[in-house]
Nucleic acid binder design. Structure first.
Length: 235
DNA sequence: TCATTAAATTGTT
DNA sequence: AACAATTTAATGA
């Protein structure tokens, strides 16, 4: 039986390099680290695959080790609303884990990704025992609030250039996604899915932003040159 | 390591 | 949506 399970269960412990990319581990004291780190598991998600679905009970707190995920819901008439993209170093769903409520949105992979999970019980243990962990969660919640306000603002403008700029700024937020680095790995097609524009329109907007020196277009990614300007872009 | 080929991504209409 | 051009990844000598 255990052998059969192992064949279907793709979860495995994290490598040293992957553990180093988990931002909140560095906030823990040694005994807290020793308790939490062994509980972490990582799994591969193929494009379109759901990490979790709306209404399902919470089992894990999830984080992106590598790849690109999107957070979305569907309206009654089947239209998809994308709230946010999730890039490496980003951990999400803590609000839901905190309240032990069912998920209120879907998270799926936009491309082949590595997703880590911390069991909900371990999450609560850290919350009860670790001050460093609480600080991390607090800053996480605060930063995400700012991100959603930014998303609301961006949604109120029909200007594609501004919407694309805001989306990119959100994806490279160093607090929420510390693993991204100076080059955001994302194709123009993936960005188009996230922003809700056509690839052509995104391509056009990117060239406009590049011409203003805010970023540089590279094959399969974007080099961020001026994050502050991207974030505050007004028209 | 290099050359060839396939696949992915971008640029343009 | 379709197509061409460009870049990367994979393959095998």
């Amino acid at each position: 039986m255990p052998l059969r399970l192992a064949l279907h269960d793709r979860r495995r412990p994290l490598t040293e390099a992957e553990l180093a990319g988990v931002p909140w581990l560095s906030h823990l004291k040694p005994d807290e680290y020793d308790r939490a780190a062994p509980e972490l598991r990582v799994t591969r998600a193929e494009p379109g695959e759901l990490i979790f679905r709306m209404g399902r009970p919470v089992t894990y707190w999830f984080g992106v080790v590598d790849g690109l995920l999107k957070m979305s819901t569907e309206t009654a008439d089947g239209q998809t609303i994308t709230y946010s993209g999730l890039t490496p170093g980003g951990w999400f769903g803590e609000g839901t884990v905190l309240k032990r409520e069912p998920y209120r949105y879907n998270v799926s992979a936009l491309r082949r990704s590595l997703v880590a999970g911390l069991p909900a019980d371990t999450f609560h243990w850290l919350l009860d025992h670790s001050i460093g962990f609480n600080r991390f969660i607090m800053s996480q919640l605060n930063e995400r609030l700012g991100q959603f306000i930014g998303a609301l603002e961006a949604d109120r403008t029909p200007n594609p250039e501004q919407r694309v700029a805001r989306s990119i700024a959100a994806l490279v937020n160093p607090v929420l996604f510390p693993g991204v680095g100076e080059v955001l790995r994302i194709t123009q097609q993936e960005l188009a899915y996230l922003v809700g524009l056509s690839r052509q329109r995104v391509n056009e907007a990117l060239h406009a932003l590049a011409a203003q020196g805010l970023l540089r277009i590279e094959y399969g990614g974007l080099r961020i040159l001026d994050l502050a300007a991207l974030r505050s872009r007004q028209f």
